[in-house]
């Protein structure tokens, strides 16, 4: 009986050790996968950046991407900004009127739009539109051997496909966000003047009164970083996609999700850099 219990204890012991080892192995494996992915992304980014600054450049490709990212995203980003500005004015009115601070609405709208909502919402909308399109296009090129074909035609895929997208993302997002800032503030103005019966000229002067250049500049710096990240994620996931239609679908999803998460995280970090209270 005693021996039996001992062997049972032994079994328990073995099971526990096994479970612990299994857990450690799984954690280790996940960590290795994470390190591998991080390293691969870092190398991809490094290679892509080095091709951005070394000739030959492909101005046609850069222009095409700039039009795609900048011009064709205008309606989506503009609409997002317009309604965000309008909602912001309404919401802050209903909140601020509780302590008679309605006068601050114009300032709140201007600061929120330029510092946060313009770049972040604009970035997220562009991530959905452009990040997905890039991943799908490059991913399809990968699975149909078009990227291999580029190499056989003495054209470096990083220079021809990836560098133009990164440059266009970096350059166009700040411009888009600048437009979004203006439209967003205009949205707030529309609601403020036509719905909440503010005086137009005092609303405008209130908007300008507390707005500092750094508010706008920080938003534009954020936009440039977001534009780079969106293009990077679209290209990275597309370039490494495999396995036909399903692989391209997964690449598209991953591109949008990872770009969105990176936008949110980097938004916090950049805000910390610009407006640290310490």
């Amino acid at each position: 009986m005693i021996r039996h219990r001992d062997s049972l204890n032994h079994d328990f012991h073995d099971n526990d050790t096994g479970r612990l080892m299994g857990f450690l192995a799984a954690t280790g494996r996940a960590f290795l996968v994470f390190l591998e992915a991080t390293g691969r992304l870092a190398m991809f980014t490094g290679t892509a950046l080095s091709h951005c600054v070394r000739p030959p450049f492909y101005p046609r490709q850069i222009l095409r991407q700039m039009i795609d990212i900048g011009f064709y995203s205008l309606p989506v980003v503009g609409l997002t900004a317009l309604f965000t500005g309008m909602v912001l004015a309404l919401q802050s009115y209903s909140g601020f009127s509780r302590f008679q601070a309605e006068g601050a609405i114009a300032t709140v709208v201007a600061l929120s739009i330029t510092r946060e909502l313009g770049p972040v919402l604009g970035g997220l909308m562009v991530a959905g539109r452009i990040g997905a399109a890039m991943a799908a296009e490059i991913g399809t090129m990968r699975v149909t051997e078009q990227i291999d074909a580029l190499s056989t035609l003495s054209t470096n895929p990083f220079k021809y496909l990836i560098a133009p997208r990164l440059m266009a993302g970096l350059a166009m997002l700040p411009l888009l966000v600048l437009v979004a800032d203006i439209i967003g503030i205009f949205g707030g103005f529309l609601v403020g003047v036509y719905r909440l019966d503010f005086n137009a000229s005092s609303y405008i002067s209130r908007t300008w009164e507390f707005l500092e250049p750094l508010d706008v500049i920080s938003g534009l710096v954020k936009a440039a970083v977001f534009g780079f990240l969106i293009s990077l994620m679209g290209c990275y996931h597309g370039y490494h996609s495999k396995g036909g239609a399903q692989g391209v679908g997964a690449a598209t999803t991953n591109a949008v999700v990872s770009a969105s998460i990176m936008i949110l995280i980097s938004n916090y970090l950049i805000t910390g850099l610009f407006f640290s209270t310490k």
């Binding site: 090129m141 149909t144 051997e145 078009q146 291999d148 074909a149 190499s151 056989t152 003495s154 470096n156």
Partner: peptide
Amino acid sequence: EKLQHKFGMLFQGAALF
């Protein structure tokens, strides 16, 4: 890249852009 100038390739699915 220089060596690639010596090569031409017809891909299985044509791989046209």
